[in-house]
Design a protein around this nucleic acid. Sequence first.
DNA 1: TGACCCCTGGCC
DNA 2: GGCCAGGGGTCA
Length: 273
Amino acid sequence: MPELPEVEIARRNVARWMAGQRVLRARAAPSRIFRGAELAAFESISGALRSLERRGKYLLFRFERDQGLLAHLGMTGKFVRRPTGEEVRFSRAHFELSDRFSVHLADSRMFGRIEPVRASALRDLTVVRALGLDPLADGLTPERLARAVGKTSLGIKVALMDQARVAGLGNIHAAEALFRAGIHPARKPASLSPAEWRTLSRAILDALVFALENQQGEEIQYVEEVGAGNVFHVYGHGDEPCPACSAPIQSFAQGGRTTYFCPRCQPAGKGKR
DNA sequence: TGACCCCTGGCC
DNA sequence: GGCCAGGGGTCA
């Protein structure tokens, strides 16, 4: 589900929902979302949210008294706000706020993650330190992008999805950015010209901003939930005409995931794979 | 690098 | 009933 833009929207929504409120109670049911962490540590959280930071696809909650939380939405996680007491499907954990609303983390597949951590230690967590360049939080330039992706024999799309290289891109937006840049997903990073790095850098930002602008609203909507409302150019559009040239969009398996691309707009290039 | 796993829901 | 799913992690 969520990639950088969706997590960023979640961050903005949750920050707005919790602004000026106090957490009266934190409650959770045991689930693998906690990855073995003590439920009591989560349920002891109270007071005001001081800051909510996004790094890649992770959210870093910092509360009063050095209380903190590392959260990841996995594939199907989302934060929702409901009147306190209202039943929320797939809710795994929630905060009851002083305005009588509650903020829930709902996640059907439970690939998400919540881990209570001292606020001051959040940035030192191994998983956070391991994150690569965040295109929005760190700023993206062609030089930084090329350096972050580095020398690898991985295809460019697989490399872009490696969170240790570039943090926040997933299957959808990596494919969308490469389409915008006219670069075949299986190209080797070493084969990209300086002009292509410039185009790709711009395309990543454009794809992320486009997604951000299409995710305004109280709750995130994932592409499988909107059906015909899929606003992406190639993702999920196999066999449909390319919006730029009308050639049929193709797909293939790459790094264990389905990659969509336009064979005409994104030629493999001779000797470049 | 690939295969498989973790889970559940929704669509064909 | 089978297949697919935008996450990450582990294993050989």
